[in-house]
């Protein structure tokens, strides 16, 4: 087990983590401000990926594809918010879960209807393809490095948006007291639509970016959605900082666990048993992490509310 391999895996973990952050940020923002649990967030991720694959296929431009992914997801998000989600804010979580589960069925089967069941592929653009040499003689794919950079930029952008802009003040005020900011003359329903569209755009972006290294297919959103849930349970619901820390923790645990647990087991048993036992345990590692955090802090690392 060389240092180079370890550094590569840490980078992979970071890359996975920041992509989870893009999903988790939207979820945690929507929950923090509107008090809504949105299972259909994974569908927005899928819609972003399909929009990107379609546009990239038609124009050949990766940047246009990313823009299309964000626009399609934001537009779908805004429409869904106005048509359905808006009616759910005052309802209990059970109704929210069911209505957004219904949306998953509609979006997944609708996409399968339009695009068929075969996966689509998005290509890494030539200017991001190939490896890049890092200090220490490490060759690492440029595209994955770019994903890490995008994730960090989004994190900084969100921080700036929430801490430094007028919209951010309204978002924070909306988290605390929605009646009060409505009384102060802010159109709260427009604010909600905007936040929902923002979260959707981030999910769409993540879908397009990850869809490029995996494949674009129906049902790709839900496993990521559930991991994003684990992220915000660990980080604390409603906290962007928590989502970021949680996302990196989950990304690193999942990637490193998959590589090192089988190796660790090989110290004790024969390779075949070690491989299967290590793989089984690695698949459970992030949930064990989540359980440990819950035992220690039931509201997550940065969760304020009980």
């Amino acid at each position: 087990m060389s240092t180079i391999l370890i550094i590569e895996q840490v980078l992979n973990g970071l890359q996975f983590g920041v992509m989870l952050f893009l999903m988790a940020a939207g979820l945690t923002l929507i929950f923090g401000v509107m008090g809504l649990i949105n299972l259909a967030h994974g569908s927005l991720y899928m819609i972003g990926a399909f929009a990107a694959a379609t546009v990239a296929g038609a124009t050949g431009s990766f940047l246009l594809a990313l823009a299309a992914a964000m626009a399609a997801a934001a537009l779908t998000g805004a429409l869904v918010e106005m048509a359905v989600i808006r009616r759910l804010y005052a309802r209990d979580h059970l109704d929210q879960v069911l209505a957004t589960f219904a949306l998953i069925l509609i979006f997944s089967e609708g996409t399968r209807w339009i695009f068929g069941s075969l996966p689509l592929y998005l290509n890494i653009p030539s200017w991001l393809a190939g490896p890049v040499a890092l200090p220490g003689g490490i060759q690492y794919p440029l595209y994955r490095l770019a994903l890490i950079a995008v994730g960090l930029l989004v994190w900084l952008g969100l921080w700036w948006l929430i801490e430094r802009t007028r919209l951010g003040i309204q978002i924070r005020a909306g988290e605390n007291d929605r009646e009060m900011i409505a009384a102060l003359g802010i159109d709260i329903s427009k604010l909600y639509t905007l936040i929902f569209a923002l979260g959707a755009a981030l999910a769409g972006l993540a879908g397009a970016l990850v869809g490029t290294i995996q494949s674009v297919q129906v049902g790709m959103g839900e496993p990521v959605l559930i991991l994003a849930f684990v992220v915000i349970v660990i980080g604390g619901i409603g906290s962007i900082k928590g989502a970021f820390v949680g996302a990196l923790l989950v990304g690193l645990t999942s990637t490193l666990g998959g590589i090192f647990l089988p190796e660790l087991f090989k110290l004790f048993t024969d390779p075949a048993t070690a491989q299967s036992a290590g793989a089984s345990l690695a698949s459970m590692s992030i949930y064990i992490l989540m359980s440990l955090v819950l035992i220690w802090r039931p509201t997550g690392l940065f969760g304020a509310r009980a």
Binding site: I37, H93, I232, V233, S276, S280, M284, Y287, M290, G300
Partner: peptide
């Protein structure tokens, strides 16, 4: 509340992946 929903969902996923890798 919402934590409970997400955690039960996550445990479901844990068993799912465990059964796949077994």
């Amino acid at each position: 509340g919402v934590y409970f929903i997400m955690i039960t969902l996550a445990f479901g996923q844990m068993f799912y992946y465990f059964s796949i890798s077994w």
